[in-house]
């Protein structure tokens, strides 16, 4: 009996240390990555970049032209307009994907018959696992043509469809499955008694779904929005295929070409050297800060929105 307990305890301890080790491993990778990017990204601001001179942080953060002068011979980089573009695009794509995603989730969780719900859930999971390059190819093959023709319909000559609108559409498509999946879980975990209470008081199903179920799940839906916006802020490949990669801005017109922080980092990354290479890591730092701040703000809002006892 005694030895048995001791044995169990030892196994417990071993398992616990394995967990601790794997946690430390994954956590240290994040720290290593952050340190690496910060160290690389900070060099343009503290060294003289092989005689080009230090990059000015203020103009870097507020400027409206990516690079003034000749590449490799100029240090006049700026991402101010790109920060605006990135947030603008993420916001617009959320504006599209959040309502559609939440309504889909509501349908799957509450309205659809069991078989159909099961089927739809699988499809959503499948969509969520499609790699971004596939969305990018779909975007450059289908969405660009669609946007080009749409613009023509409005009498606007777009640049081959490369535009804010195309980027927003691709990102909305990409974030849709994430938002649907997460808000579906939130909606499903709304307690039955709240719902039944509403129905018992004479509310219709639709009234209950919108006024009680969605309201109770809003914290979870907000979490879905945060995940969705994270994905749109961080997407590079698909965006660079449809954005047109503008070099100055900000670009707010729906049919204007645009660029985001990630697609700027990706452009020519493999073919460049020196400060033109290091500066992409600085853009990476800016991106990390932007994502961190956005998440922070959204989380603060989420807390203020409050929730009705949802797991």
């Amino acid at each position: 009996m005694n030895t048995n307990t001791r044995k169990k305890k030892r196994v417990d301890q071993i398992v616990r240390s394995i967990f601790l080790a794997s946690t430390l491993l994954s956590a240290s990778f994040i720290i290593i990555i952050v340190i690496f990017i910060v160290m690389k990204g900070i060099t343009p601001f503290i060294t003289d970049n092989d005689g080009l001179g230090v990059v000015n942080i203020w103009t870097f953060l507020t400027g409206t032209v990516w690079l003034q002068g000749t590449a490799f011979q100029s240090n006049l980089y700026a991402v101010g307009f790109i920060i605006v573009n990135t947030l603008y695009i993420a916001f617009l794509s959320l504006l599209l994907s959040l309502p559609v995603g939440v309504l889909t989730a509501l349908f799957i969780a509450k309205i659809a018959p069991k078989r159909l719900a099961e089927f739809l859930r699988t499809i959503v999971e499948l969509l969520a696992s499609i790699p971004s390059i596939v969305y990018g190819l779909f975007g450059s093959g289908i969405i660009l043509t669609f946007v080009y023709n749409l613009a023509e319909l409005f009498g606007v000559q777009s640049k081959g469809g490369n535009s804010v609108l195309a980027t927003v559409l691709v990102l909305a498509l990409m974030t849709l499955p994430t938002i649907t999946a997460v808000s579906e879980v939130a909606i499903r975990s709304v307690r039955k008694d709240i719902e039944e209470g509403s129905l018992a008081l004479g509310a219709t199903r639709t009234q209950t779904n919108f006024k009680v179920v969605l309201a109770s799940a809003k914290s979870g839906i907000f979490a879905a929005a945060i995940l969705g916006i994270g994905r749109s802020l961080g997407e590079a490949t698909a965006v660079s295929l449809v954005a047109g990669n503008a070099k100055s801005g900000p670009n707010l017109g729906l049919f204007d070409i645009t660029t985001t922080l990630t697609s700027t980092m990706l452009q020519g990354l493999k073919e460049t050297t020196g400060v033109d290479y290091d500066i992409r890591f600085s853009v990476g730092i800016v991106l990390m800060i932007v994502i961190l701040l956005t998440n922070f703000i959204l989380n603060a809002v989420k807390k203020r929105v409050g929730n009705v006892n949802v797991k």
Binding site: G69, S140, K159, G160, G244, N245, K247, I257
Partner: peptide
């Protein structure tokens, strides 16, 4: 290597993307 001397509003893309764009954009 200098974008600022180019015409305003140019599109930057890779080899394949430019090839595909020219199948859509009649005025590119």
């Amino acid at each position: 290597a200098d974008d600022s001397v180019l015409v305003d509003g140019f599109v930057t893309n890779d080899n394949t993307a430019i090839l595909t764009a020219m199948t859509t954009d009649e005025y590119g």
